[in-house]
Design a protein around this nucleic acid. Sequence first.
DNA 1: GTAACCGGTTACCAAAATGAAAGTAAAAGG
DNA 2: CCTTTTACTTTCATTTTGGTAACCGGTTAC
Lengths: 126, 126
Amino acid sequence: MKVKGASCISCPMDPVLKAVTGRWTTTILWNLSSEGPLRFGALMGLMPEISAKVLTDRLKMLERNGIVLRTQKPTIPPEVSYEMTEHGRDLHQALRSLHEVALKWDAEGWKPGEGFPEDPLPRAAE
Amino acid sequence: MKVKGASCISCPMDPVLKAVTGRWTTTILWNLSSEGPLRFGALMGLMPEISAKVLTDRLKMLERNGIVLRTQKPTIPPEVSYEMTEHGRDLHQALRSLHEVALKWDAEGWKPGEGFPEDPLPRAAE
DNA sequence: GTAACCGGTTACCAAAATGAAAGTAAAAGG
DNA sequence: CCTTTTACTTTCATTTTGGTAACCGGTTAC
């Protein structure tokens, strides 16, 4: 009688959240989703604070989950690139929505740990 | 010269992702977003595997970030409830998109660690 | 007198995640 | 022969995180 239509303990959100949220994971997905295929080194360049070990771990997990596709050219030195799979691209809209929120909050002066300043728009104080 | 319009090292995604993704955080936000205000005990009930300590931690962080609002009635025993702030509600669309992905992947047989079965639609094998 | 209620807090400890650095492969260029 | 390149892998030490369990306050029910 309280069901509003969406939330539930056993709804399939949990496993998906485990797969796509978490340290670095969403950042990687956002980069791949907005930039297209990227080589390992390019991803490292976009995320200067990640270590090769962790990036490798996350990419492997995303690949196991069928969200990211790894393509290796058998050249020397090797050229490996990563991109969203067809399934992975389902996340495009969610990632774009998150990005929009990020832009909005940034414009409103939001800061991690401090939240928002009193008023989003200093001009035209009501 | 390669800018396509969205991704960038210093774009405001990183701090927002730190605030809204992470273990349990997104689940809490999804519950509050889809169910409306919830008491501490109700949140515990919706997430049977979380501990009180971790739930408290996450709620405090979300409150510090201006995403969640904590309301305490000075009754005995106390009644505390949590809800999305006005700013926090900016996440509604992103959370709904994520939920849609979760429903779709679930319908396609996606499993964490195993990805998708060969074909989303067993019928009409090509 | 004392246990229960709710929404926590605190201390302690084990487990997991992370970071830095070095190593690996195999060929091409000096 | 030695270095450079890319994309890792491995090792080790450190940091972070999580779980458990006990405790808290103030009032009511037993």
